Simulated assay, not measured.
Amino acid sequence: MSMHAYLLFVAASVVLVLVPGPDMAYMLTRAVAQGRRAGSMAALGINVGAYVHLAAAIAGISALLLASATAFAILKWAGAAYLCYLGVRALMSRGALTDLTGSEVRGRSLRAIFWQGFWSDVLNPKVAIFYVALLPQFIDPQAGNPTLQLVLLGVTGNMIAIGINLVLVAGAARLTGKLRRNGRIALWLQRAMGVLFIALGARLAAQKA
C-alpha cells in the first residue's frame, strides 16, 4: 500500500466519521442527557463493536452475510428492535437518568451504556457494508499480505473514529452541563433521548441494503 493511498484512506475516514448516523446520534444523546462519562462509554462501546465488524470482514463473514438478503434483513431488524427497546426503556423510566445534583452516571450504569453502544454498532448492517465495501478499495494486491493491509486500515479507521468521537462527546457534555443540573430539564432530555432511539430504530428498519 502506498503512502498516498493510506493518506487518502485517512482523509476518507475522517469525513465518514463526521457524517451523522445512528452511532453518532446514540453517543451524543448519551453525552447530552447524561454527561461526558456516559457519552465516552457509549463511544468506547461503539468502537469495540467496530472491531467485531473488522474481524468479520477479514474473516469473510461480512461478505457472506451481505450476500444473503435474509441474513442482512435479520441483522437489520435485530438492530432496529434493540434501538427501539432502549428508547422505550428511557421513556418508561419514572425518574431522570441523572440525579438532581448533576453528577454523572457511574459503575453499573456506565457498563450498561458501554454494552448498549457495543450492540448498537454490532447490530448495524451499514457498518458491515462500510468494511466490506470501503477497505478493499485501498488494498494494493502487488504489495502482498492483503490481510495485514486490512488490519492496518481497519485499526487506523477505528483509532480516528474514537479520537473524533471523544472530542465530540466532550464538547456536547460541556455545552449541556447546566441543563442536566436541572431535574425537570434532565427528565425531558431523557425522554427526548428515548424518542430519538425509537426514531433511529425505525430509520434503520426502513433502510434497504
Rank of each mutant, 00 (worst) to 15 (best):
A112M: 06
A71I: 06
G171S: 09
R191S: 15
F114N: 12
F118A: 08
G95H: 09
G163N: 05
M159S: 09
L189S: 02
R111M: 14
A173F: 09
M193G: 05
S62D: 07
G87E: 10
R89P: 00
L83T: 02
L16Y: 03
P20G: 13
A202R: 09
V14H: 08
N145K: 04
I58K: 01
V32S: 03
A25R: 01
Y6F: 12
G194Q: 07
V132H: 03
S2W: 01
A90Q: 04
G171Q: 06
A59I: 07
M92T: 07
W77Y: 14
L64A: 15
D140S: 03
W77M: 13
L134P: 02
A192L: 15
F197V: 08
M1K: 01
M1P: 02
L179H: 06
A170T: 11
Y82M: 14
F72S: 00
G95V: 04
L152R: 05
N124I: 15
R184M: 15
G95E: 15
L135F: 12
L66K: 04
V17G: 04
V132Q: 05
L75R: 05
A133L: 12
A50K: 00
A90M: 11
L44V: 03
N165I: 12
V169Y: 04
N182G: 12
A69I: 06
A69V: 08
R94W: 09
V52N: 10
I74M: 10
T98S: 11
K76M: 07
V17M: 04
V151S: 01
T98F: 03
A69M: 05
